[in-house]
């Protein structure tokens, strides 16, 4: 009985969490335009999706911003971690906590403050402001992915490299990077994911014709629910979930090379 309730409890939680998404994905394959009744299976809405030039444009914006912002944030974040490593303990704690704030800060606060900043600096909002905003909120994710790898690393390997005659830049390139690379890759994927599904901050840092998929879905939904939204949301959900699974698998994997060889 207790066992039954335990599993029942878990099931309720999972249903609670995944039912809306399940319904969304299910109805994205619905034949009719109805959001309430199932009339039959069809990939019709997906086909329509791929023939919509505005969506194609939004997809391009989403992916290019996600890639660029993740890439730039990864470079900045990684060097930040390497730099922070040589800070004193106290300073490091302060810097880390400062870095942590944007991660827990409400998106709307971040969005509005960026909006105000761009207005104040008289920067026209569009693709580039969105990219800047995404780089900003992505950096902490990279830092918090790379940092554990940096902590795991034996610091004296860096000194050993210098000892063998490596210049500091060579030591970082040949000894530090390879050891923290798993964290860097994880950070990149995580940053890509965060950028890919961001709505709030993108919404406030762009105007007019520049829109990513989230903004496009939002504007479509305001006009009236179209099953194309379901299809688009379903695709976004799948992309994000796949990337998050990759991140999780990577971070639970053993840190060392797992090559099994017999001697």
């Amino acid at each position: 009985m207790a066992r039954f309730f335990k599993q029942f409890y878990l099931a309720i939680i999972l249903i609670f969490m995944y039912l809306p998404i399940g319904a969304l994905i299910l109805f994205s394959f619905n034949e009719s335009k109805s959001m309430a009744t199932w009339t039959g299976f069809s990939t019709h809405w997906y086909e329509q999706l791929f023939h919509d030039p505005i969506i194609a444009e939004a997809l391009w914006v989403t992916i290019s911003v996600a890639l660029l912002s993740a890439l730039i944030a990864t470079v900045i974040g990684t060097f930040a971690v390497i730099g922070m490593d040589s800070l004193r303990k106290k300073t490091k704690g302060v810097v880390l906590n400062l870095t942590y704030v944007p991660m827990v800060n409400a998106d709307i606060v971040m969005g509005i403050s960026l909006l105000l900043l761009f207005i104040f600096l008289n920067i026209p909002r569009g693709y580039w402001t969105m990219l800047l905003a995404h780089i900003t909120f992505n950096i902490p994710y990279v830092i918090f992915s790379v940092l554990p790898k940096m902590r795991q690393m034996d610091r004296s390997t860096y000194e050993a490299a210098l000892d063998m005659g490596a210049k500091p830049s060579e030591a970082v390139r040949k000894v530090v990077f390879p050891q923290i690379m798993p964290g860097i890759v994880t950070g990149f994927i995580l940053a890509f994911t965060m950028s890919f599904d961001d709505f709030m901050i993108s919404f406030f840092t762009t105007q007019g014709t520049t829109q990513n998929l989230s903004i496009y879905i939002y504007s479509m939904a305001r006009v009236g629910i179209n099953p194309m939204i379901n299809a688009l949301s379903a695709i976004m959900f799948v992309v994000v979930i796949v990337l998050l699974i990759v991140v999780n698998v990577r971070s639970t994997k053993k840190p060392k090379r797992t090559l099994q060889r017999e001697y």
Binding site: D154, S156, T157, E159, A160, D163, V175, Q179, K256
Partner: peptide, 10 residues
């Protein structure tokens, strides 16, 4: 230098 915990490159 031979470091305390060897500091080999993993």
């Amino acid at each position: 230098t031979v470091f305390q915990r060897y500091a080999l490159f993993p």
